[in-house]
Simulated scan of single mutants.
Amino acid sequence: MICNRAGVPGAGRPPTSLRRPGRRRLLALGLPTAWGAAAVTYKLSCPLAQQQGLGARAVTSALFFAVGTGLILHVRRALLRELRQARRVAGAAQSALLRPLPPRIGGLSVAAAQLSADRGAAIGGDLYEVVATEHGVRVVMGDVRGHGIAAIGTAAAVLGSFREAAHDEADLGGVLRRLERALGRHLRQRSHGEHPPAGPGPESDSPVAEEFVTVVVLEIGADGEVRALNCGHPWPYVLSGRGVEPLARADPLPPLGPFPLPPGLPVRHCGQLQPGEALFLHTDGAEDVRDARGRFFPLSKVLAETLRRHPSVVPHAVLGSVFTALLHHTRGAPSDDIALLALRNDRSRRPASGSPGATRPAGTHARPTPHL
């Protein structure tokens, strides 16, 4: 299920079925009871039902068949109504977790969407957020190990911490440490709730101790300078006139969870994102998904082809092209959740100090363009 992060109409008021539960329950129980009582009354008191002739038996069978069919249709209608109600509630809760992103944040054009591997699900263990702060636009993209309700709870804990830390912490390393602490608290609470300790044994025996989250945290300054910290997540791509290239090539830190962060966090300076250039963030499902022949999805080639068709790097067009190619590659059945996020710099050009038209600060080397 592809889910663009759009608002949910009516999410602020309870649905009609929740405002009138008594009437719904009365209809759900009263109608089948009335039908059953009428059928039993007919069988016990109607003279025609007591006859043994073929015509009488046919009438009785038709009556009970009609009552049974009506009961089945009524139960089916009730179940479908409850399913629609559950989906509406789940959609409202999921939109509260992954809030709809506005089309512009801090001078950047933004587009984000998800492709869920589970039919009917809008989100899973993938997470992302973009926040404009006094320190610059800060971005997080992450992937929680596993699926289901537990993964959604972990994603909520990490996202909630990021939304506060992005404003509070002046340094990008401080933001990442806040995420680590929030994840640790959440996993400890989950461990005690799901697997209460039977004794003084180590908590590492719990399956929750093996949980982890891959995450990349970015900061885009007012001058377009990009700083990044990466814990086990795929590096974003830069989409520009030079083509498609990774934001960095260094090995990331280990994922959050299994190992503590090092004392000194190596914040990586990735050069400037020039006006018209874009960052493309993704979870590992976008590159690890395979087709029927076992071939991985060629994400970089698809992005390069998209750039040739859309040189202006429209974020929504980029996401649409990638999702179309993903669905074609997997025949509409991806094996993993996929989240994509595109940000284009729409700010006016600010030359760096030094020679006119310089695009990178001193000491930053231009990224080589890979051969695709």
Rank of each mutant, 00 (worst) to 15 (best):
D118H: 05
D118S: 14
R119V: 15
R119W: 08
A121G: 05
A121K: 10
A122L: 15
A122D: 14
G124T: 01
D126E: 04
D126W: 03
D126N: 00
L127A: 11
L127G: 07
Y128D: 01
E129M: 03
E129G: 01
V131A: 07
A132H: 03
G136D: 02
G136V: 03
V137P: 11
R138N: 12
V140F: 01
V140E: 05
M141Y: 08
M141H: 01
G142Q: 08
D143N: 00
V144K: 13
R145H: 12
G146T: 12
G146L: 00
H147I: 08
A151C: 09
A151K: 09
I152C: 12
G153L: 14
T154H: 02
A155G: 15
A155M: 15
A156Q: 15
V158K: 00
S161G: 08
F162A: 08
E164T: 08
H167K: 09
E169G: 02
L172I: 00
G174D: 01
V175G: 00
V175Y: 00
V175F: 07
L176F: 04
R177G: 12
R178A: 11
L179M: 11
L179A: 02
E180N: 13
R181Q: 13
R181M: 12
A182S: 14
L183E: 01
L183G: 05
L183F: 12
G184Y: 00
R185C: 14
L187F: 05
Q189E: 15
R190K: 12
H192Y: 07
G193A: 15
G193P: 10
H195G: 03
P196F: 09
P196N: 08
G199Q: 00
G199S: 04
P200E: 07
P200G: 15
P200T: 15
P202C: 11
S206D: 13
P207A: 01
V208K: 10
V208M: 08
A209N: 04
E210N: 08
E211T: 03
E211M: 14
T214G: 01
T214L: 00
V215F: 04
V215L: 05
V216S: 08
E219W: 03
G221T: 03
A222N: 04
A222L: 12
G224M: 09
G224C: 11
E225M: 10
E225I: 11
E225Y: 02
V226R: 03
R227K: 10
R227E: 13
R227D: 14
A228T: 11
L229E: 09
N230M: 08
C231F: 14
G232R: 00
G232W: 02
G232E: 00
H233E: 00
W235P: 06
W235E: 05
P236C: 07
P236R: 04
P236L: 04
Y237H: 15
L239P: 10
L239C: 14
V244Q: 03
V244E: 07
E245G: 13
L247W: 04
L247P: 04
R249M: 10
R249F: 04
D251V: 12
D251A: 15
D251Q: 15
L253W: 05
